[in-house]
Simulated assay, not measured.
Amino acid sequence: MPETSPVNVEEAEWTIPVEDGRLFAKTWTPQAPGAERAAPVLLFHDSLGCVALWRGFPARLASATGRRVIAYDRLGFGRSDPHPGRVGSGFVAREAGHAVPALCERLRISDFVACGHSVGGGMAIETAARFPARCRALVTIAAQTFAEDRTLAGIRAARGEFQDPANLARLAKYHGDKARWVVDAWTETWLSPDFAQWTLEPALAAIRCPVLAIHGDRDEYGSEIHPRRIAAGRGTAHILPDTGHVPHREREDAVVGMIGRFLAEA
């Protein structure tokens, strides 16, 4: 349910060893009865994102849901170690098989809620499909399920914008000297011919938990076909009016409230 009064949230930072380096993670634990027993929310960031770019959302979500919230920087992003090379066309599914088990082991997570923004939503879907007995619920925010023309057009436009050193410098505030790699990992992977046939349909067919798919009606990186595909026969698609690609920032109160109500009933 939506939060009715502020709940103190305790923050902690973690280092997670994985095959190719170390991941940076952060947790927000509400100081409320039952918080340690409830399945925590595992956040997957978008193509240019990191823990810091979730801003105040994780703390708000922890307070509203009474659950621990966990966010981490993928390898090559934010405060995690540099990625050793190219991410490859299978990077969305690979995250579920490589990073998630390491996070669960280090943070002693059994069951969890998978929640992701944009391509992170795809990673949340792959995680829910890979761990059907452990994933208690799935939330996607502005996720894509295939390489739609609208998505690719938005990425081409962004690739041109990042030729401006000022735009790259703004991204470097969060990713340091990994910023150029971060941009290329997004644009060159999605625009590669190898990625053209990518789809989440097999993963969606394997999901067994309740689903909430949140999307903005003005999302420049994906039409409403995506949340409707994600939710079809599995849950609810909620389309936010006058909202673009970052609903949890543009309409934070609404998104926190929706997720809180969904998890209270899941």
Rank of each mutant, 00 (worst) to 15 (best):
K173L: 14
A196N: 11
D194I: 08
L204N: 12
D194Q: 14
T189N: 00
V182H: 02
L171A: 12
L191E: 06
Q197Y: 00
D177S: 09
A185D: 14
A206Y: 06
D184F: 05
E201G: 02
A185G: 14
D177R: 11
V182R: 05
A206N: 13
P193C: 06
R208H: 01
W190Q: 15
D177E: 15
P193T: 05
L204S: 02
W181S: 01
A203H: 07
R170T: 07
D177V: 11
A172S: 02
L191P: 08
A205F: 08
W190N: 13
W198C: 06
D184H: 05
L200S: 13
S192K: 06
P202V: 14
L200Q: 07
L200M: 12
D184C: 04
A203F: 00
E201H: 04
A203I: 07
K178N: 01
S192Y: 09
A185K: 03
D194F: 01
L171S: 05
L171C: 12
F195N: 14
R170K: 09
A172R: 02
E201R: 10
F195K: 11
L204F: 06
A206T: 10
V183L: 08
H175M: 13
A196Y: 09
D177Q: 12
L191H: 02
P193Q: 06
A172L: 03
A203V: 12
T187L: 04
W198A: 00
A196L: 06
F195P: 15
R208T: 15
Q197K: 08
